[in-house]
């Protein structure tokens, strides 16, 4: 390594991260990928593992890859990179890079009015690749939202993983639900009765204990 500093050389990783819709990804440090320990178990998940890893690290393949296999290796390289990415962002340097994006609001803001523009974090509800696309987590209402732009419709959630937002909010001390309940629905200024066929059913979802009795109740739920 080290000879890739010529200005017109774009690494596989920086190219991958600059593709359309890939702006949620950070560039995984080369040293992280080169440490075999960090890749434990991935060789049995990703086909063409060795070749894919060479792609990611911009290494000449040991054996020439047949033209018909090139697309498959490229696809494997993307899955492999994604899975490494999910592990990298729950390390300190990875989380720091994610924090740069988070601070700029690059993962978007909570669409919930009462959350007042609280910044979101990407999450994969499922850690297996190919199951579900990326979702967004709001640390204030601890709810999950779909990205509003269609460019993220093909981004695999597993490439961010289910642990990332939890890890991130712990690391940066954002791990406090901060629910501001929304107003009740009213008709000509009057609250709709609970027993009505359109009466409120979801208040619990945004409720926080506030009265003495509720606080006592809250202490006892453990």
């Amino acid at each position: 390594m080290g000879e890739n500093d010529s200005s017109d050389f774009e690494t596989w990783i920086s190219n991958f991260c600059s593709l359309y819709g890939h702006d949620y990804y950070v560039e995984v440090g080369q040293d992280f990928i080169e440490d075999d320990f960090n890749l434990t178990g991935l060789s049995s998940i990703v086909p063409y593992y060795k070749e894919a890893l060479d792609f990611i690290l911009d290494l000449e393949p040991e054996h020439e890859i047949k033209i018909k296999d090139q697309a498959l290796v490229q696809q494997s390289a993307e899955v492999l990179y994604g899975l490494i990415h999910a592990r990298y962002i729950i390390t300190k340097p990875g989380a720091q890079l994610m924090n740069e994006k988070y601070s700029k609001g690059q993962f978007g803001c909570c669409p919930r009015y009462a959350c007042n523009g609280s910044k979101l974090l990407p999450i994969g509800i499922n850690d297996t690749p190919g199951v579900e696309t990326v979702r967004l987590f709001c640390p204030d209402c601890f709810d999950l939202y779909l990205p509003t732009s269609s460019r993220y419709l093909n981004i695999d959630g597993a490439f961010f993983g289910s642990t990332f937002p939890g890890f991130f909010i712990k690391m940066y001390g954002l791990d406090n639900p901060n629910l501001r309940p929304s107003d009740d629905l009213k008709i000509f200024g009057f609250k709709i009765h609970e027993g009505s066929n359109v009466g409120s059913r979801m208040k619990w979802l945004r409720a926080t204990p506030s009265t003495d009795e509720e606080l006592r109740e809250f202490d006892e739920v453990d």
Binding site: P111, Y113, S182, D183, S200, M202, L205
Partner: peptide
Amino acid sequence: CEDIYNPK
């Protein structure tokens, strides 16, 4: 969810 959202 009976909640209020900002338009996209």
